[in-house]
Design a protein around this nucleic acid. Structure first.
Length: 230
DNA sequence: GCGACAG
DNA sequence: ATCTTGTCGC
């Protein structure tokens, strides 16, 4: 695996095209006893990123532990290349997880990307892990605004009509979230599974808890490493 | 050339 | 993404 910090955007584009051929979109048949959420936090203008993965029991969505890692990154944030900034740190956090989840929810898009290679797909291929992308804003694609009530959904497609994911109204009268498969799951299952992760907030529990964890970690409220709960 | 543009 | 007080609406 190349050092992402040394890549140019053209080189990163070539790598995305190579990895894209490995993305597998299939119905999810495996067990679903554990699910996890991954996210990154950082101080503006800083090259230090705080990555974290929170593991939760499914379907209770009760958190059972988290993995936190601090890392230096130099690849800049460029729309369409988020993975080159966040995946290295997330892989470190992933490696120190004592127990791998059946599904990992990544904060960002899966195949709803110009080259069908959003961060969730990128991570999934490298870690050979089933992943779902859950984003707060659109990166690529077209869609009709879903109805205002919680549960309303509308398809996200490319300009040729190919299905990329779905736009889900997770809470009534609240901006919708974008759900797309990353790897080893398909569009229908990514939506079905993610819907089961919505509780009281706009964001799915795995992502929401991961966001809280990395934020507290960055602020020094939690120590680095693996922390089981009980 | 102009608008769009995950985190 | 992060920094922030008040404010609008269910």
């Amino acid at each position: 695996m190349p050092d992402y910090n040394e890549l140019t955007v053209p080189e990163a584009t070539l790598l995305q095209r190579e990895l894209q051929e490995k993305v597998t979109l299939v119905p999810y048949k495996g067990p679903l006893n554990y699910i996890a959420g991954a996210d990154i936090s950082f101080n503006k203008f800083s090259t230090t990123v705080y990555a974290g993965i929170v593991l939760l029991k499914f379907p209770s969505l009760i958190p059972v532990g988290y993995s936190l890692v601090k890392k230096e990154v130099h690849f800049p944030y460029v729309p369409g290349f988020l993975a080159f900034r966040e995946v290295p740190a997330l892989l470190d956090a992933w490696e120190q997880l004592p127990l791998k989840p059946d599904i990992l929810v990544v904060d960002g898009h899966g195949i709803a990307h110009p080259r069908r290679m959003g961060i969730a797909s990128h991570f999934g291929v490298l870690a050979q892990q089933a992943t779902i992308g859950s984003a707060k804003k659109k990166l690529y694609g077209v869609y009709e605004e879903p109805g205002p009530e919680k549960g309303s959904v509308s398809p996200l497609t490319d300009r040729k009509g190919q299905l990329l994911g779905n736009v889900l109204r997770s809470k009534t009268n609240v901006k919708p979230i974008f759900v797309s498969p990353g790897h080893l799951v398909d569009v229908p299952d990514s939506l079905r599974i993610l819907r089961q992760c919505i509780q009281k907030y706009r964001l799915p529990e795995p992502t929401r808890l991961a966001h809280n964890a990395v934020n507290q970690f960055r602020l020094g409220a939690i120590p680095e490493g693996w922390t089981g709960m009980s």
